[in-house]
Design a protein around this nucleic acid. Structure first.
Lengths: 316, 316
DNA sequence: TCTTAATCTGCTCGTTTGAGCGAAAGAGGC
DNA sequence: GCCTCTTTCGCTCAAACGAGCAGATTAAGA
């Protein structure tokens, strides 16, 4: 049996929202005071009898964002509503657009921006509008230019972001992962590389995404790792990679030896950053996303609704 | 490209409805006046960017009801929201319940109520609550007791409605359709039948449903008509039956000869009634419903959302 | 280019609404 | 039954809001 109060709440909600009556009128009609009407109304919203929805491609999910901020200790969060039909492309496009918007609206405007590279970042760069800022130095925080088959993606991403802000890009002239630790140390000691890495530490904001730990990874694609290497990493608990470094569900380095051979910004450095914007979308990346957010690798999260929900689900 | 104003409207709507900010605050935040915020907000609702929905089994669709009243010349209309999953039983149950509610809330309380019979009416009777009124005389407006296989359905419907209002039922002791017109005239001339029919004309309200013109009809089921008869009626344009009389899409009698042999309240009498409540639900009955509503056979319509939409669709 | 119509903007003012408070009404323990 | 605690109620008051208006701005036509 439905409680009497609920039925009345429904009736009141109908008259108020569908019939555009004032609370006073409704009160007179149903023989109750207008305050009671107001209370029923707010309870109806509380109970979910009245649902207010914002239906728009660019709409955001502020409720989820608030929860993410509060429960995950984020400085900020942007959540894009899920697309009706399962159009994964469109979803990532929208999230990328949101990230671009966020970056453009970021205050104070970063003087130096540290970025990673990959499909997501490239999409963000595309969607950034010309003149989104002025005079921003864009610096790569992890290596990987040379061996990449889709040559230059990494370079063009940085260049495009810089160009659209009438700034200039500083590339990291190094492979992502080296075969021998000695080589890695040597290259990091090199003036050019060391200079870039130092510049990276001075960045006022960082923008990066993450990869899934499977054979589809760009690191495999680029030849840095074999599918066997990845399988081994997964066995050790890897859920994905952030700026070229594989992490487990707790956000810790999975394979210290491999990490030693990886050139670029370290995870701890990222963790201590004032503003680290993490862009992620798609079901496949839920695990990495969780690891990144929970281990404090980012201060700002830009993602889709499903991912956001998955993150909060976990926390309950 | 999405117009700038729309994006701003979305932003405003988010801040207002999701973030519970006042229009003033939003104005300050976005650098616009609060009046502009208000205007964007009302436009967002107009454009359907902001959608307010009342989610409840007993909720009604007041917008549709208003349209029905205005566009179809109805005195009143009750529209029940569609059920999510295709549960036809539940839908008819809810519509029946709504009809019962409507009847109970009807003012002035009818002294005499004319009813038809059938599955729908029986459901309405079931859902009527004890003491829904006091001292109402319930009179059958069309025959059909005797031959009905589910013997007594018609009788019990009337009896139940009457009993729940501490009133009494007056049954029409006659078949629905007779084989010869002479018999029909004779039976109508009989004191008992004539008395009931006269009482029926004095009713202050009528409650009835309609049947579909196909072999599933209760008139076939009860043996008044053969499936062949019905097929012939359909060929002549029949869409369904109301109080035992078959009508076409315009609400006119399909077969005058058959009509002459049908005992009970006439369609014209129904049309001139002050209050004629028509209860109908389900996709199969859209055509009959349209015919009934458009030809002015009812003054009050109780139905489901899909049917209501189908009726209005037609009118465009 | 000037004129005119249409739209948009910021505002005044009266209405509508929600927070907060003391009184009344129920619920529950003794 | 009587008392206490909690909930619900009606109300005051100030904030929030929308209708309607006049001036500003834009678009369109001559």
């Amino acid at each position: 049996m439905i409680p009497e109060a609920e039925l009345q709440a429904v009736r009141v909600a109908e008259l108020y929202y569908d019939d555009d009556k004032t609370q006073d009128e409704i009160g007179a009609l149903l023989g109750i005071t207008r305050w009671k009407v107001g209370r029923l109304l707010s309870q109806a919203r509380q109970d979910g009898i009245v649902r207010i929805e914002i239906v728009h491609p660019r709409a955001r999910r502020l409720g989820l964002e608030r929860e993410l901020r509060e429960r995950c200790g984020l400085k900020d969060a942007v959540v894009i509503p899920g697309v009706n039909e399962g159009a994964a492309d469109e979803l990532s496009a929208r999230v990328a657009e949101a990230a671009a918007d966020y970056l453009a609206a970021l205050r104070p405007v970063p003087r130096t921006l540290g970025i990673s590279w990959g499909r997501t970042l490239s999409e963000v760069a595309d969607r950034l509008r010309d003149g989104w800022a002025t005079g921003v130095t864009v610096v790569q925080i992890n290596g990987g230019v040379s061996l990449n088959r889709r040559a230059g993606t990494a370079a063009t991403t940085a260049a495009m972001i810089a160009e659209k802000a009438s700034g200039h890009a500083v590339l990291l002239p190094s492979p992502a992962i080296l075969e021998r630790i000695e080589t890695k140390l040597a290259i990091e000691a090199d003036r050019t590389v060391a200079g870039v890495l130092e510049l990276a530490t001075t960045a006022s904001a960082y923008l990066y995404s993450a990869g899934v730990a499977d054979e589809s990874s760009v690191l495999v694609d680029s030849g840095y790792l074999t599918t066997g290497d990845v399988a081994e990493l997964v066995r050790k608990g890897a859920v994905g990679d952030v700026v070229g470094r594989y992490i487990d569900a707790n956000g810790n380095t999975v394979d210290p030896a491999l990490d030693e051979r990886t050139v670029g910004f370290g995870l701890d450095q990222l963790r201590s950053a004032e503003t680290a914007i993490f862009v992620v979308s798609g079901e496949a990346k839920h695990d990495v996303a969780r690891a990144v957010v929970m281990s404090g690798l980012c201060t700002v999260l830009v993602t889709d609704e499903t991912t956001a929900q998955a993150l909060l689900e976990e926390k309950r």
